[in-house]
Amino acid sequence: MKNEQSQTTDNAKTDLTDPVFLKELRIQMLKFAVMQIRDESLAEDAVQEALIGALKNSGSFGRRSALKTWVFAILKNKIKDILRKTNRLAEVSEQLPDHADEDNLMLFGTNGRWHVDERPVSWSQPLESVKSDHFWRVFETCLSHLPENQARLFMMREFLELSSEEICESLNITTSNLHVMLYRARLRLRECLENNWFSGGEKS
């Protein structure tokens, strides 16, 4: 198998020892970890361990994107471990639930229908956006503008892919409570992306 590895194929070991690539990767990983752990030094630990794990078991990857996917999968597991061990999951529950009055964020009228200028528009080729660095800056900004609890629950669910059961159990919240919070997070995030990217922001 080793012989079949052509020179054009990147090798994870060389990639991970390429200082420029590694530096950028670390920054990106750290940002991701800090968002979710909210503790710089615990996040550093997670990134460190993930990189060491990656170096130890590095095989070959055709593209750097495959390597990144793999390193981030390791990091995700480290983040989950840390959240469980330090009980940081539980910190969310204190402020739950949010007030119901912000539920509709003024998006809907009293009859429960969209206000005309809040009505979602069609996103053209949304998955083309992911190729743009600018799009990801908008995405991160929108995430950071979510109320804290909503952001954390959204990330636990969509980034760490924790099951509803685990989230509810460790936070001691009901499933319907979780679903309301995720709904609010999605309402806001969707709106923010639409306002700042999918309708007009794209060209700027």
Binding site: F21, E24, L25, Q28, M29, F32, R63, R64, S65, K68, T69, V71, F72, A73, L75, K76, P126, L127, S129, V130, K131, D133, W136, F139, E158, F159, E161, R186, L189, R190, L193
Partner: peptide, 17 residues
């Protein structure tokens, strides 16, 4: 939103890959 999150979670949100 879910697809975008998955791409983000894979660390594929930069163009240097």
């Amino acid at each position: 939103l879910r697809e975008i999150s998955q791409i983000y979670t894979k660390g594929l949100n930069t163009t240097n890959q």
